[in-house]
Every structure is written in C-alpha cells, then in structure tokens.
Amino acid sequence: MNAIEIKNLNKSYQNGLKALENINLSVKKGEIFALLGPNGAGKSTLINIICGITKKSSGQIRVFGRDNEADYKKTRSMIGLVPQEIATDSFERVINTLRFSRGLFNKPSSDRYLDSVLNSLELSHKKSNQIRTLSGGMKRRVMIAKALSHEPNILFLDEPTAGVDVALRKTLWSYLNNLKKQGVTIFLTTHYIEEAENIADRIGVINNGKIIIIEYKKKLLKKFGEKKLIFTINRKNKSINTINSIIKKYELKQKGNKITFNYTQNSKKDPASDLLSELNKRSIRFQDLEIKKNNLEEIFINLVQK
C-alpha cells in the first residue's frame, strides 16, 4: 500500500487562479520523495491540502489507504508537518511546545520520547530555553522536533533547509536518512537541487500547478542526463579539414583548441565511443580528455523551461 495516493487533485481560488491542475501522484511507504519546483509552482499548496490546512477543489487523497477528509483524524495522526515558515510561540519553552504538539495529536505524554527527539536533533541542552532565545537554525530544528513529537509515519517538510547553513543542512540530511531507516516516509519540497540529488529516492517536478515528471532519481539522471565530452586537440594535428568534417558530423562546439561534444548515453547508443574511435581512426591526437555529467539542476531547468 502506498503511503500517499493522490488522484485528479485540483485547486482553484475564487480569483480564478489554478494552483493545482489534475495532480496524480503516489508516494511509496518508506521512501524519500522530493518535489522540485520554482516559486509559486504549487508545492506548498499540495502539502497544505494533504495535511488539511487548505481545502481542495476536487480530487481524492488517500493516506495509507484512508481518505484524508472522511477519515481525517486517522490520517492526520500519521502525518507530521514542518512548514516553510518558522512559526513558533516565541515565549514558550522548547520542551513545553513539544508536549503541546504531542498532546494535540492525541498521544499520551512521554518526556522520554521527546527527550530522545531533542537529543537526536542536538537540542537537549536547550530544552528549557524559551524559543525566542534560539538561533534560526535551532528554531528550524524545533519545528522538526514538533513534527516528530507524535511519532508520525509520514513527515512532510516544506523547504526544510531554506536559509540554513551548509553544515546544518548536511546534518539534517543525515537525520532524514536515519528517519527513513526507521521506516518513516518523507515528502519534501525544496529549491535546492543538491538536496534532492543527495537524499531523495524519487523526484517529482512541478511547474504552474502541474506535475511535469515523477521518476526515480537515478532514472531521471540517466534519462535526462546529458553528458559532455570535452577534449583539447593537439596543435600538431595535420589535417584541419578532417577535424572540421568531424565537427560538422558530430555537431561539436569548438572554442580555440577545446572541443565539446554534448551527447546522451543509453543502452543502445554510445556516441562518445563512436566519436573517439573515429578520432583514433583518423589519427587525430588530443592532449586532454574530460567527461562531465549533467547534474539535476540542469535537468530541472530544462524541464521547467520546456
């Protein structure tokens, strides 16, 4: 059974704005799913509808097989949410805000469990501090601790590392991986492609309220992963005409002695090998050879710009 199953979900506002259009999406139990998209693409709206904060216009959402409206008490008790904005009661103490969250989600009090959450997020030493005295990064971790306080099966993180320094970002990634190992399903939205590339199992791309693609990260990288073969030709090469004919044949880009070949590799075709064989056959020598792989960021930009 999928952790989340969304069918034909639509959201329109009274001013006519279509925030989400015919969203179909399933998130597998125990995976980390990253939803990528530019600002205003509909990422937060989608999370807010699943969690019950925003009303849908039409469609169906199931959380572990249960309808998120008809059976909202059951579905919400399985979900933890870390919203995009840091929203806390500044004057409340860290431990008290966690006790509040746990109670709100109808869980019996357990300071032992809350202590373990604080400990894993390196917040134990701040448990009696008022939230207003914490740094931005610590407040972000308090938000995560609150979402975990009721032992959810699914954790939603809406841009969890926005404005967080690199070191803390990496700590959070490792923490999310640990949660995944414990069986928690993680759904995150992010602006940072690096984040999705590092921790996600599957990636969805959303733009203008529509899902453009959903794919396993590795497949996505492979599918859209254009490679670059860059080689610097030797000035001692005899025939410039031969080189020019190869440039034309393979649509190479030349900048001085540097020649770049953009290609997509798949199981049937290996254009790089063909090019290298041809260069060898025609006795064209090169000084340097480099292969660059497109990263997710380039794939994302290509998809969104289409």
């Binding site: 929203a87 806390t88 609150k146």
Partner: peptide
C-alpha cells in the same frame, strides 16, 4: 497572526 495555526489545522482534532 504568528502562523502557528498550521499545527492546530493539521492535527487530528475536530
């Protein structure tokens, strides 16, 4: 006002 209403609205509480 503070935005913490998100937690109430997403909780299993009627």
């Amino acid at each position: 006002f503070s935005g913490t209403i998100y937690e109430i609205l997403s909780a299993p509480i009627s």
